[in-house]
């Protein structure tokens, strides 16, 4: 029996004996179940550095360009959680929060962003920026970069060195003007 259109299928079911019809209903149920399962599978599981597993839905996952490319190009077995060895569960939950709000909160996104930023100290901000960079989440990365510029733009070079853990190597520029004095200090 070849079934081409839905209307025809119903027509033919009605004409068939009860046991065949029951079997067909079972088939239909199985099909529906499979569809639901497929959707479940689309939810990808991510495993953080502290061994926590997150189920992430496709719309959020879409923002994480790195995970997307892992799935697409590396043909990863999506039934196994994808390890993210340099992201903590705390940061991943923040990231998922941000992506969720960014997608579904259209009314008071700015308010959320303000709250989000307030809950982070400098160190956490840096960790999150690295995580956003690693996962390649453009919206979060841009937001954090802009937050960084707001934080540092009016600060002094000393503050910047401290903030970014940068060693002051500009003394050697001065040493060209005062070589005798600078040499003995630098050699230590």
């Amino acid at each position: 029996m070849v079934i081409t259109a839905k209307g025809k299928e119903i027509l033919e079911i009605a004409e068939e004996p009860e046991y065949v019809m029951l079997a067909k209903v079972e088939d239909l149920k199985m099909d529906m179940l499979r569809i639901v399962e497929e959707e479940e599978i689309k939810k990808i599981r991510l495993k953080t550095s502290d061994e926590a597993t997150f189920e992430v839905e496709p719309s959020i996952l879409k923002e994480m360009k790195r995970v997307q490319s892992l799935i697409n190009t590396e043909a990863i077995d999506t039934s196994v959680a994808i390890p993210l060895p340099n992201i903590t569960s705390r940061n991943l939950s923040r990231i998922i929060d941000f992506c969720w709000e960014h997608q579904y909160n259209t009314e008071n996104l700015e308010e959320f962003k303000g709250r989000f930023l307030k809950s982070l100290n400098h160190q956490e901000l840096k960790e999150l920026l690295l995580a956003a960079n690693y996962l390649n989440i453009k919206t979060l990365f841009d937001f954090l970069c802009n937050s960084f510029t707001d934080l540092i733009q009016n600060e002094s070079p000393e503050f910047i060195r401290d903030f970014f853990n940068i060693l002051n190597d500009t003394n050697s520029v001065k040493s060209m003007h005062a070589p005798a004095f600078q040499g003995s200090i630098d050699d230590d």
Partner: peptide
């Protein structure tokens, strides 16, 4: 030399500075 541990990578720093 330049950046100690925990410092941000060069490209990330550039991304921040480019907005200043």
């Amino acid at each position: 030399m330049g950046s100690k541990q925990e410092g941000l990578p060069h490209d990330v720093v550039m991304n921040i500075l480019a907005r200043l």
